[in-house]
């Protein structure tokens, strides 16, 4: 309870969040789902906390890796034509 009160005071009076709260916000931030206030609290925290900063970088780099390194399959040339043909036949 005392710890909770301490976190509450830090968060609400000084805008500081705990590492636990920071980790909770991590995915919301990387996914662009955090509110402006959450984003500000988060940025302030990782400016001062190296472990959380590193965890954030890892999370970001995994997301980037997925976006840039996975091979994109080429849509087969005949697929669109085949869909259109089927639609014409059923219409």
């Amino acid at each position: 309870m005392a710890t909770n009160l301490f976190s509450w005071i830090k968060q609400n009076l000084f805008g500081q969040i705990s590492c636990q709260r920071c980790i909770e916000l991590l995915e919301l931030i990387t996914d662009g789902e955090a509110s402006l206030e959450e984003e500000q609290q988060f940025r302030k925290h990782i400016d001062e906390c190296l472990p959380c900063y590193e965890t954030f970088n890892l999370e970001k780099s995994i997301k980037e890796m997925l976006q840039t390194k996975l091979e994109k399959k080429q849509v087969p040339d005949d697929l669109i034509q085949s869909i259109k043909k089927k639609i014409r036949n059923t219409a």
């Binding site: 636990q20 995915e27 590193e54 890892l58 780099s61 890796m65 996975l70 091979e71």
Partner: peptide
């Protein structure tokens, strides 16, 4: 959402991964 972090995966490791591994 549980907040466990158990990985010791590193950013450099992730950056070196190639497409097939991912």
């Amino acid at each position: 959402v549980d907040v466990s972090m158990t990985t010791d995966l590193r950013v450099e490791t992730v950056q070196h991964m190639i497409g097939d591994e991912v």
